[in-house]
Design a protein around this nucleic acid. Structure first.
Lengths: 403, 403
DNA sequence: CGTATTTGTTGCGGCGTCCAACAATTGGGG
DNA sequence: CCCCAATTGTTGGACGCCGCAACAAATACG
């Protein structure tokens, strides 16, 4: 490890703290990082010159002593485009260092197959409005993409996204080309990014081992292991929705039978509730309505589905020994109704030791978890090498098509 | 990161390479670590003064140029006691840096409850013979312990070890006190350590994401994630044997029903084969015999058990996206018979993407995997801080009891 | 208003790595 | 047999980065 690597390491340590925990006094930074006051001063100076942090004179004063200036991450210094391709919507946001959201657009779409090209053009239109709002000195550094499907981390290759009708789509490369961002595009699975977001800015802050359970049409899991996303050998880890949990179960879209998601997924819930004509948000609303009316079939459906959900969660707890399990996706909204059977079922599976320390909680970022996770992912190279920040200038998106 | 931490980091980088990959020329070390020739010379000098490596003059000469001396890890410089408390045996070994095994003793025991104190005394007797063989200048640095049960990593507290009849035993502290090793004792689960050993010195060398499936009485998994053992929040990760895989299955010792190990474990196999009076090695031998005789019930039992084994492995592949799955424990020996149904069942569960790159292989370390893993674990503090090595002197174990 | 306390600032020293020049050693070609 | 190219250990010096200690600045409290 060369001296310059040490420098990078320490710049990262400081910036990472600010990015995660927000504004902080210089002296606090020195304490937390264990670095000397003079070193911190020097590091802050460099980060400030790079435009990644800014200092406001001594706003923080508690007790006697010279007031310490407060250092804040500077969102304009490094902003990313976050994009989410979800089951029934597409979303774009601009997010800066420290997690500041400049703007966010979500566009509902019918479920089913969508052309890749048209979808990208739609994203381009949505992004244009957000990019137009950029300040003069605002620096764009890349793009993060969340996809509801199996995505290879390395290059953003979409192996399979049944809910979009995509197969073997080099999405990362396509977006990079379309926006003129080259390889400053990172893509990953929705659940993995939801996990990252809830871990960084949501219900899982402070966890060391986090399991995020994302339910949309299918069920996916995202895992944070020792503070780092667990990617697997090729970035495909977390496909817990297709673990076998009931050999006598229903056939699954994946070709197997009795997968967790065939028992605990949205379709299973809808079928048990006799509401197969509804999907997504409408299904949620319909169910909520019927719960209020104390409809027995709906209550029973929630009971059964919650139980299956809990079995699968129990399995994940035994395997990962997490301190937090976060329920994300659709079921966030049904959490109050699913909670009891889910927790009971999980308890029935979980061994005593891993069961003692775990909390099962509802996600706190709502539908935007994956989108925010995509932003976090795209910001990570900046934090890993603050001095290496390169601004990218997107090619001008096309003018809006006039009617 | 202070300068002294940089030094430690680089010492670790060099020693770790030697420990894992064995003897290596100086120039090769420089290449692999990216450090300068002069820096390498300095680091080797320090490690040599610490007694952790030794140089033999230019044995390695390929092509023109000045021959580069070969640097080797020096096992005597840091040796550990490795102990394994398994289902039907206790084992002790002395292992030095680089993985050199000085001696190894395994003592078969009947299954069932064993007194903690007597077991520790037995280990002390076994260890004595090995310690007597120590050379004058051989340095003992600690003890690593593998336990067939649920063990808390931090302090070696045995939460539950049904196969030994132990519950809430502060094993780490007891062993530390008995041997006068204080807190230089580390304990962990058998499967976790089997994973570590196969990853470092067995069938999983070179993997990035490894899943080790250990079958003794129950089934446990050990996971290597990005080259590091995955421990979970409290060190209990990997209890895959108690994941629900068949809701209509048999009751499990854990209180639940349809756990993976009730379907794919040793007891299930024995029952299907009609050999419930045999356990462990005897069961293996009996089965092997009957397979040679083409006994239909045995063949069928292997077919069914292999299938269940494969389902669970498939689940793990979907969740972890490993590049290697290593079959360890009892089933290593039945691997040839289990392989086909296992692989077919796994394939039926695994998604295409994570299934493409994975290899399912038989462990190559045999019954000693966990024991060797315990040694690797106990050696890890030396590698993490080579300059901080402290020799420990075990209290003289009691004289052998004369008959 | 003075004192204790905390923290930024500054100059210096130390540690650890890199660099460049040189020496050592070997293989191969004439 | 000798010379040259290639590779690598060795050595002294330079550089980068951090820690330290003394000092200055700014605040709370009595």
């Amino acid at each position: 490890m060369a001296p310059e690597e040490v420098r990078r390491h320490n710049l990262t340590a400081v910036l990472d703290r600010l990015h995660r925990s927000g504004p902080m006094s210089r002296s606090e930074l020195a304490q937390k990082t264990g670095l000397n006051r003079s070193t911190i001063a020097d590091l802050i100076g460099e980060l400030s010159r790079l435009g990644l942090v800014e200092e406001k004179p001594g706003t923080a004063s508690a007790g006697p002593g010279r007031p310490s200036p407060v250092v804040s991450p500077r969102p304009k210094g490094a902003t990313v485009l976050a994009v989410e391709f979800s089951v029934d919507s597409v979303a774009v946001a601009t997010v800066g260092l420290g997690g500041h959201v400049y703007g966010k657009v979500r566009q509902a779409r019918a479920r089913g197959t969508h052309s890749v090209d048209e979808t990208i053009e739609e994203v381009a239109r949505m992004a244009r409005a957000l990019l137009d709002d950029f300040a003069e000195d605002q620096v764009l550094v890349g793009m993060g993409v969340a996809v509801v499907g199996v995505v290879r981390r390395r290059d953003g290759f979409v192996h399979l996204a049944p809910n979009l009708g995509w197969k073997n789509v080099p999405l990362g490369a396509l977006l990079g080309a379309r926006f003129g961002l080259g390889d400053a595009v990172m893509a990953a699975n929705e659940a993995d990014l939801g996990a990252l977001a809830e871990f960084r800015r949501g219900a899982g802050v402070g966890a060391t081992q986090l399991v995020y359970v994302n339910s949309e049409v299918g069920i996916g899991a995202g895992i944070i292991q020792d503070g780092q996303p667990m990617l697997g050998a090729a970035g495909y880890a977390g496909e817990a929705g297709h673990t076998l949990i009931n050999p006598d179960g229903k056939p699954c879209t994946c070709g197997a039978r009795g997968c967790w998601e065939t028992e605990a997924g949205e379709a299973a819930l809808a079928e048990r509730a006799g509401l197969t004509e509804f999907v997504g948000q409408q299904l949620i609303e319909e169910i909520t309505q019927r719960v209020d009316d104390r409809d027995p079939q709906t209550l029973q459906a929630l009971q059964v589905t919650g139980t299956w959900l809990g079995y699968g969660i129990g399995n994940l707890i035994n395997v990962f020994n997490p301190d937090v399990v976060v329920i994300g996706g659709l079921y966030q909204e049904l959490y109050p109704y699913l909670r009891e059977p889910m927790e009971e079922a999980a308890r029935s599976v979980v061994l005593q030791a891993p069961g003692e320390a775990v909390r099962i909680v509802r996600g706190s970022l709502g539908v935007d978890a994956s989108l925010l996770g995509a932003a976090e992912m795209a910001l990570s190279p900046v934090i890993a090498d603050p001095a290496g920040v390169r601004a990218v200038t997107p090619t001008e998106p096309p003018d809006r098509v006039e009617a």
